[in-house]
Computed example of a mutant assay.
Amino acid sequence: MPFNGHVVWITGASSGIGRALALECARRGADVALSARREEQLRAVAGEVRALGQKALVVPCDVTEEAQLEAAVKQVVDHFGRLDVAVANAGFGAIGTIEELDAETWRRQLDVNVVGLAQTARCALPELRKTDGRIVLIGSVASMVTLPNTGAYSASKAAVRSIGEALSMELKDEAVTCTTIHPGLVESDIARVDNTNTPDPDRRDPRNAALMWPTDKAARVMADAIEKRKREYVFTGHGKVMGFLCRHFPRVMHPVLANFSR
C-alpha cells in the first residue's frame, strides 16, 4: 500500500478526475481530504472513500479565496495531524474565440486555473515540508495542443506547466517534490461547466468520446506518477502523440488542427 498512512488533500474533488483520484488514493491506503465548492457532492465522495476502509474529511473551499485555502490546510492538519500530498486539481474551461471572450471571463479563467492552483501549492508547502511530501499540479495536454475556441483554457494550462517547472527548480534542494500532470481526454464534467464556472448538466460535451479515458484508468496512472515523484507526466497515448507533433512539427499541425476543429 504505497500511500499507507498518508494524508492526501485534493481540490476539485467533487467529480471527474478529482473524485477518481481520491478513490484511487484510498485504495492505496491514504486518508483523503476533499475540497470543492459543492459540499453535497463532496459528502457523496467521502462516503465512497469510507466504504474503501479509509478516513475522509470534507473541506468545502473556493480556490479563488486565499483565506479559504489557508483555512482548509489548517483544517486538514488539525483533523489528521499531517499532510503528505496536496493535489491542485480545481479548474474549468472557458470556451470561445479570442474576439468573443471579455476581460471578466479571462480573469475568471486565470483566477481559478492559475492563481487558485498556485495559491493551493503555496498554502500547502509549509505542511508538506514537515512530511517530505508531494505537491501535484493538474495541467492538461491543452498546454501543448491549442485549438480554436480554447485559447483561454490553453493559456491557463500553459501557465500551469510553467508554474510546475519553476516550483520543481525552487524545490531542488528539498525533500518536497512537485509533479505536474497533463491529462489528455478523460471523462469528466469539465465540458459541462459554463464560462462563469457554473455547472450546466445540459451543456453538450464536444470532445471525441472514442478517445476519452475512463476516470478510474486515468486515476491509476496519475497515482503511479505521484508515487514515483515524477517531475512531469503526460497521458493519454493520443495526448503524448499530439503534444510531440505540435512541438516539433507546428507548420504541419497548425492547419490540421484548425480544419479539424471545424
Rank of each mutant, 00 (worst) to 15 (best):
V76M: 04
G139N: 06
S168N: 10
P183R: 03
Q54S: 12
K217A: 14
C178N: 07
A159C: 11
Q41H: 12
T97C: 06
R220Q: 15
F244K: 06
D200C: 07
R247M: 13
C25I: 02
V176C: 05
D62W: 10
G47D: 09
S156A: 15
Q109E: 15
R107E: 15
V221M: 04
G239K: 10
G18E: 08
I98G: 06
V114M: 05
G47M: 10
A103M: 10
V145H: 01
F235N: 01
T177D: 01
K228L: 15
A13K: 03
F260H: 14
H79R: 13
L21H: 02
K157M: 06
A158K: 03
V241T: 15
T131R: 13
A22D: 01
R37F: 08
S14W: 03
I135A: 14
V76T: 07
T215G: 12
T198L: 06
L128M: 07
D216K: 03
S35L: 12
G29V: 11
M242Y: 12
C246P: 02
T64Y: 11
L257H: 02
A33I: 10
K157Y: 08
G93L: 04
E174T: 15
Y153A: 04
A258L: 08
A219E: 08
G239T: 08
V76F: 07
G12C: 06
A121P: 00
D202I: 00
G81R: 05
E232V: 07
A158T: 08
H182N: 14
G16M: 00
V49I: 12
R27C: 11
Y233C: 06
R220P: 02
A94H: 01
V112P: 09
A71T: 11
G5Q: 10
L21I: 15
P255H: 09
D102Y: 12
T215M: 09
G96L: 07
A67C: 00
R129G: 02
R204T: 10
W106C: 03
R204A: 13
P60S: 08
R161H: 14
A56W: 04
N259P: 00
D84S: 09
P60D: 07
A175F: 09
L125T: 02
G16H: 00
G96A: 12
E66D: 14
V252D: 00
E70W: 13
L110A: 09
A218F: 13
L101H: 10
G139D: 04
I98C: 13
D205G: 03
R262W: 01
I190N: 10
V59P: 01
A219L: 07
M253D: 10
L101F: 10
S162R: 05
G81M: 09
P2C: 02
I98W: 08
C178P: 03
L34G: 01
Q75N: 10
T179F: 05
H6F: 03
D200R: 12
A46H: 05
I98Y: 11
R43Q: 15
E174V: 11
V252K: 05
G16T: 01
K172F: 13
H6M: 13
R19W: 07
L23K: 04
G91F: 01
V186N: 04
V85H: 06
